[in-house]
Amino acid sequence: MRTPHVVVVMGVAGTGKTTIGPLLAARLGVPYAEGDDFHPQANIDKMSAGTPLDDDDRWPWLDAIGGWADARAGLGGVVSCSALKRSYRDRLRAAAPGVVFVHLAGDRALIEDRMAHRQGHFMPTALLDSQFATLQPLQADEAGVVVDVSGSPEAITGRAVTALDALPQPA
């Protein structure tokens, strides 16, 4: 890629955002930021208790991620963020107009299995249904690509790089 994009790796919990994000950043030669690190403690406590966040919980989190992405404009970067609703992606684009999205998508059973086997994460599998119910896939007018999450992290990352290479370069 001639000019690095700022990439938001998005998708429901368990799709591999935290795994693929750093691998993608390394392949692109840009910094990575973990979207969960932008959550205030109150959001983490709420999700840990099995309670889905509402939009009022998410706006400050999205604004913080958008601020990071805007600061990386022209330099490139990768940040993970569920970005499940169009309105959330619109909020990120308002803060950082050049962002592109890599939507990690896959079979619900595969994602649930991966969630069940990960350790040390605050998001319980009980919230997966609410994640899928909230998900609004990328629309044709949104800059981004959909990448299947089956296979190894390296294979998924390779598909993401190939898909991003096909996008128009940022201005």
Rank of each mutant, 00 (worst) to 15 (best):
G77Q: 14
R72Y: 09
H117E: 14
N43Y: 13
F101G: 04
P124L: 02
T125C: 06
G144A: 09
A42H: 01
L110T: 15
T157R: 01
P124K: 04
T15G: 08
R86C: 02
Q41N: 06
R108I: 00
R93S: 12
F122S: 12
R108F: 08
A160P: 09
A71D: 15
S130W: 02
M47K: 09
S80H: 05
R114A: 10
D148Y: 01
D37M: 09
T162N: 13
A133H: 07
R27C: 05
V102N: 08
P168N: 08
A73T: 14
D107F: 05
A71L: 12
G106K: 07
V9R: 07
D90Y: 05
P22G: 07
A13T: 10
M115Q: 05
A64G: 13
V102R: 10
A163N: 05
G11T: 02
D57E: 13
W59S: 07
Q139L: 12
Y32K: 01
A69M: 11
A95F: 08
V147R: 14
G77F: 11
M47L: 03
P137M: 03
P153E: 04
V7M: 04
P60D: 09
G21S: 01
P153A: 04
E154G: 02
G151Q: 02
D37A: 14
T157K: 02
V6L: 11
L164Y: 06
R89P: 15
G120H: 10
G67Q: 10
G158Q: 10
W61R: 05
D56N: 10
A171M: 08
A69R: 00
T19C: 00
T134S: 14
G76H: 03
G106E: 09
L164C: 05
G76K: 03
A143G: 14
R86Y: 08
L92T: 00
H103D: 12
I65R: 13
M1K: 00
A166E: 13
T51Q: 11
Q41H: 10
D113A: 14
H5S: 11
T157F: 05
A42C: 00
F38W: 11
S152G: 11
H121K: 02
A105P: 00
P97N: 13
C81R: 00
V12I: 06
G74V: 05
F122M: 13
D63C: 07
E142V: 02
P97E: 12
V99H: 04
P137F: 03
F38H: 14
Q139P: 01
P170I: 08
L23F: 08
I65K: 11
A42V: 02
